[in-house]
Design a protein around this nucleic acid. Structure first.
Lengths: 236, 236
DNA sequence: CGCACCGTTGAACATGGTCAAGACTCGTGG
DNA sequence: CCACGAGTCTTGACCATGTTCAACGGTGCG
């Protein structure tokens, strides 16, 4: 059977869910084949780590399915989530010696992995890819800086409100009404790590918002925004 | 005199203090001339702003001399400094519609300014420049993420200690001894904005460190680190 | 000299963290 | 099907850290 002897040129990019959104989107077919040759797909279970803070930067990757977190922690063990990576997001540190943060799967994840040295070489030979990566890195920097304002200057209430609005926009489906519940994906503890708060504070803010009728919590892992304007006010 | 009729091809890059460190460092002479043609030098006095948060992204620039800050603020007026730009640093948002933060001179500043559209075009035509910019953006992202840990998880004492160590390394001259005082450049208020604290807390932490003999404050605008190891311990 | 401006210090207060107990959820096994 | 237990979430009481408000001190400049 043909399936037993797969065509070596056959590439998984053809059917890739993020083919048109990830950094590869600018590449033509020939380039995609070349890129495909140096990459490989990998499944990770929730909780598995792909990169460790401080380690040599061995691989870079594209997220195809699932959700990952980038994090770091203080010497006394307090974690801070630095960013979340969704499908089509690029992770890892190209052109660098060491990985400055840990990358872990928060759900089951499918990633498209490259050895960093291979990717670096490929990128330098394909300016269109580098340009795409630059645009992505610039956006990521913008998003990260916006997050700094949250961490540096916002109250717990403002942080939670901002977080909910942000998340809702990321999961928004055009056809869904405003109050359709969406999956939180993150545990209270993870939300706390994102926002630089504790579990207890996050929980209290959630209850406060629920009692005020601003949100509802149909179950532990979902939220629905009931009064978006109020939430926007609170977010500042 | 010739000075009255400067050669239009004459370019200020030749004598530029950051010629070998800024993103232009990879360009050959011909390219430098071309870049020079679309850029211009500009002096700013301390306190002058180059970009305003939310404005259309009109210009990008290289810092040649002096120090600038990138900042944003909450709706209720609390400022957060997002980053500092030193000579050879690149500022502004290429390939973007609007500037996501305000850029202001903290000292008198000399910058090399480009209209964003000109710069964007030039960059796309010169992959080596784009590559340099990408490397710089990636480093800046790393630095910004490190900063998030400070803002999200560190105590006032840890923040101030980290800040002092960071600053000392940026002003370190190889020949200077360990306890040579260095200029703070920033007012207490600005330090507070960098660290996500208030003026008063910063002041209190400084006095605490001084009383413990860890640092000394020869005058308002200088610090000397007396016991680096202790400071490193405190920074965590 | 006098007036700003910046920095320091103190006291009261508020926000969020810590610690501890109890409730809910869900998977496992009797 | 229910009981159990682990893990997660919620709630409460107390406490610590850093903020707020206010007064005062030093320094530099007109």
């Amino acid at each position: 059977m043909n399936e037993a002897f797969p065509n070596p040129a056959k590439n998984f990019c053809d059917t890739c869910a993020v083919r048109n959104r990830a950094i590869c989107s600018e590449l033509d077919n020939e380039e995609i084949v070349a890129l495909n040759a140096i990459g490989q797909r990998k499944h990770l279970s929730a909780g598995e780590q792909l990169l460790w803070e401080g380690d040599e930067a061995v691989v870079v990757a594209n997220v195809v399915e699932g959700m990952m977190k980038l994090s770091t922690s203080t010497i006394d063990g307090k974690e801070q989530i630095l960013g979340l990576a969704f499908p089509s997001d690029f992770i890892g540190r190209p052109f660098g010696q060491s990985t400055p943060y840990t990358v872990e799967a928060m759900t089951d994840v499918l990633v498209c992995v490259f050895r960093r040295v291979d990717f670096d070489r490929f990128a330098r030979e394909h300016p269109r890819l580098e340009h795409k990566l630059l645009e992505r890195t610039l956006s990521e920097l913008d998003r990260t800086r916006k997050w700094m304002l949250i961490l540096g200057r916002m109250t717990a209430e403002q942080r939670v409100a901002t977080f909910l609005l942000d998340l809702s926009s990321r999961f928004a489906t055009a056809d869904a009404g405003p109050t359709v519940p969406f999956g939180l994906q993150l545990s209270r503890g993870q939300i706390a790590d994102v926002l630089g708060l504790t579990i207890e504070t996050v929980s209290r803010e959630f209850t406060k918002l629920k009692k005020a009728g601003v949100i509802s919590l149909p179950n532990r892992r979902e939220v629905a925004i009931e009064k978006r304007e109020v939430l926007e006010d609170l977010a500042g």
